[in-house]
């Protein structure tokens, strides 16, 4: 059996490589262990600061209100969680979750430095097996994390399970540029400049090569939209940003 994200019964993508399903989480962990300390700096350099605008629009789409519970999956260094913390206020709750302990540790330290831990819980969890009660979360965000998940369909189903009816899912992820010219420029940038920057800043070209490869293997806008719908979400739509380099998908739990 094969799903829309190129996952078969026993193998899945790890960048351009095919690896056994049980190996992928460990390989992804190695990548993020390596980049955790320089993650935010590299994001700023690689995207020219645009990742802040992509995340800002995602937060606007969330329409989160005071008192709500927000789960930020693959929340890494906690930048979305810090913003949600202000929006939900003292009566709300934000759960910062990531499969990678090194990323969570950097995130927790950043949140402590910002004094934003009052309404934030930090949970190490796999997106495919979310350790939360059914119908308990108002909003789930996963920013630049879904492409690293071994079985995306399983993760989306798990998110659907824990969301309250009417709750919303927002998937912010690299996608497919809409213009062929932009696509060529973007390819050249991803496969030459990105690993070079990774080598200079984080002394790790391979991890950044994986990031570029994993972006290419990630489902495009329409395929991901279908996957979100297949997971049981309704009123699904997506917004392209920066010419489709990034897209944010939204689904509501029916």
């Amino acid at each position: 059996m094969s799903t829309q994200d190129n996952t078969t019964d026993d193998t899945t993508d790890f960048g351009f490589e095919r690896v056994k399903k049980e190996e992928k989480a460990g390989r992804v962990r190695e990548v993020f262990d390596s980049v955790a300390s320089q993650y935010d700096l590299m994001n700023d350099l690689m995207s020219g600061g645009l990742h802040r605008l992509w995340k800002r629009f995602t937060i606007e789409l969330s329409s989160v209100r005071p008192g709500q519970t927000v789960l930020d999956i693959a929340g890494g260094t906690g930048d979305l969680a810090a913003k949600f913390s202000n929006l939900v206020g003292k009566d709300g709750n934000v759960i910062l979750s990531d499969i990678n302990a090194a990323m969570l540790s950097v995130g927790r330290d950043r949140l402590i430095d910002k004094g934003a831990l009052n309404n934030i819980s930090v949970v190490q969890a796999d997106a495919q097996f979310l350790p939360f009660e059914d119908n308990s979360i108002d909003c789930i965000t996963i920013a630049f994390g879904l492409r690293n998940v071994t079985d995306k369909a399983k993760a989306l189903a798990s998110m659907n399970r824990v969301l309250k009816p009417g709750g919303r899912l927002l998937v912010l992820e690299f996608s497919k540029p809409v213009s062929p010219l932009l696509s060529k420029i973007y390819d050249a940038y991803s496969f030459s400049a990105l690993p070079a920057m990774g080598k200079i800043i984080a002394n790790d070209a391979d991890s950044y090569r994986y990031l570029a490869e994993s972006i290419r293997k990630h489902p495009d806008q329409e395929t991901l939209l279908e996957m979100v719908e297949d997971a049981g979400f309704v009123d699904c739509r997506y917004h392209n940003m920066t010419g489709g380099i990034v897209a944010v998908h939204r689904g509501i739990k029916g």
């Binding site: 802040r52 992509w54 629009f57 917004h239 944010v248």
Partner: peptide, 12 residues
């Protein structure tokens, strides 16, 4: 319009 551009205008 590109939402990222509008988000940038809003941020500024």
């Amino acid at each position: 319009h590109d939402p990222a551009v509008i988000a940038g205008v809003c941020l500024v």
